[in-house]
Design a protein around this nucleic acid. Structure first.
Length: 423
RNA sequence: GUGGGUGUAGCUCAGUUGGUUAGAGCGCCAGAUUGUGGCUCUGGAGGCCGUGGGUUCGACUCCCACCAUUCACCCCA
């Protein structure tokens, strides 16, 4: 085989697709219960959207985007995340004049040019929600509780919700000064990356993993301790409400999030079991984003959840997903005339909602039975000339091996009853 | 972009100090008296031993490069 799937992409094969459907269906179901509606957005957008939306200083924009010029000379980029596209759609479709708040969810692929490792691919899948129009802590709580209920409903345990507030632009500007003043005397002892961050985005120095930097920053002032009273109030409310709802969380003052658009509440669901890429879900408030993308000032909050990572976590917790149901019946065939008859019969059954397989390989009866067994068919009927002639056939229950003679006319009714009893 | 591990059948892996037609299990296909599965047995298909170069009389085996894959750094879902 010469052509393989590109690095960082992979096929989701039939034997695991039910796990994906399970997660996606649950998510869509929970979102609907919260009054969120699905939106589908383009796979690619104008590059500028992500530059402005995600932020010029982020790694995503600086080195991870799949960007190309189309034949009309436009710079196009494969979406590296979902929020920017949804925000663009919000503005472009005038959702500001819809009944507020606007609550959307999505199920998308996203693309980032990074080196692959466990839980990280170049094409990956995200489930996410965005809630526009409400600056209230209630909105934060609604989004977080949606996430919580979703994870709970698929059986996730022991996943910790980490919470932080990174304030608004004004308190962040103040804090940046404090932070820089603290770091400046230690700057030459920090790693190269941090020295670079010091200029571009000093906040990010906080989550540096270098042991040397961690030591130097032991007594660093945290943004959470410096946010303005409005932001602090807001955060207090969020915590209070989560507490009152019995949703467990821990405060992690180091969460800063790698995307520029976040303000105030930021949160992550992190796992220790799935390798070093443990962030299963990340999100937060982005009150300045719509405006910076050209809309009128509108608060927003959302999260994105990596499906691959969620599935890894489900594996590690031993959560099993219901298997897809087996075929109701396999129709075996002997001879040309019987085959025609069986094809008609199969079509009739299928049009009535029966899951039906029929031999299309021209195999021996024995081989057909083996195949029916591998398919895990629940019932088998074999049609030959005798059966066409008499209108009667043997119906075999594959789990018990029991056989009974039936009129073929009654097959549909029997199958319907059998399904009711056995489902 | 950087560092480590690994590349032999569809999958999981053996392969002796370099030596003739490269193996196993699972899976796939066919058969075990003529129209009935699971167990068992028999047979079959399927490998440029990741690619290219080098050392050697001789390379799956040793050396180099490249590619792929995987884990990790960075960053993120």
């Amino acid at each position: 085989m010469l052509i393989k799937a590109p690095k960082g992409t992979r096929d989701i094969l039939p034997d695991e697709i039910h796990r994906w459907h399970y997660v996606e269906d649950k998510f869509s179901d929970i979102c609907s219960r919260f009054g969120f509606q699905e939106i589908r957005i383009p796979l690619f957008e104008h590059t500028e959207l992500f530059q402005r939306g995600v932020g010029d200083t982020t790694d995503i924009v600086q080195k991870e985007m799949y960007t190309f010029n189309d034949k009309g000379g436009r710079s196009i980029t494969l979406r590296p995340e979902g929020t920017a596209g949804v925000v663009r759609s919000y503005i472009e479709n005038g959702m500001a004049s819809w009944p507020q708040p606007v609550k959307l969810f999505y199920n998308i692929t996203a693309y980032r040019y990074e080196n692959v490792q466990k839980g990280r691919y170049r094409e990956f899948h995200q489930l996410g929600v965005e809630l526009f129009g409400s600056p209230e802590a209630d909105a934060d709580v609604e989004v977080i509780s949606l996430l919580y209920l979703f994870l709970e409903s698929i059986g996730i345990r022991e996943l910790s919700l980490n919470l932080n507030s990174i304030g608004c632009p004004s308190c962040r500007a103040d804090y940046n000064k404090t932070l820089k003043a603290f770091i400046e005397p230690r700057l030459n002892r920090l790693c190269e990356d941090c020295i670079d961050r010091y200029q571009r985005n000093p906040l990010r120095i906080l989550d540096c993993k270098e042991q040397g930097c961690i030591n130097e920053l032991k007594d660093v002032p945290y943004l959470l301790d410096y946010i303005c009273s409005d932001c602090a109030d807001h955060f207090e409310k969020v915590k209070e409400k989560l507490y009152a709802m019995g949703i467990p969380f821990t405060i992690d003052k180091k969460i800063v999030r790698g995307l520029d658009y976040y303000t105030r509440t930021v949160f992550e669901f992190v796992s220790k079991n799935i390798g070093s890429q443990g962030t299963v879900c990340g999100g937060g408030r982005y009150d300045g984003l719509i405006e910076s993308c050209g809309g009128s000032p509108t608060p927003g909050i959302g999260f994105a959840l990596g499906i691959e990572r969620l599935l890894l976590e489900m594996d590690s917790q031993g959560i099993d997903v219901p298997l897809p149901s087996s075929p109701d019946i396999f129709i075996g065939v002997i001879g040309y005339k019987a085959n025609l008859f069986a094809e008609n019969l199969a079509l009739k059954l299928r049009s009535d909602g029966i899951t039906c397989h029929k031999d299309i390989m021209g195999r021996s009866v024995k081989a057909q039975m083996k195949y029916a067994n591998k398919l895990n068919a629940r019932l088998v009927v074999v049609i030959g000339d005798d059966e066409v002639e008499s209108g009667k056939a043997e119906l075999k229950d594959m789990s018990s091996g029991e056989v009974r003679m039936i009129n073929i006319d009654t097959l549909l009714d029997r199958l319907k009853k059998f399904k009711q009893v056995n489902s």
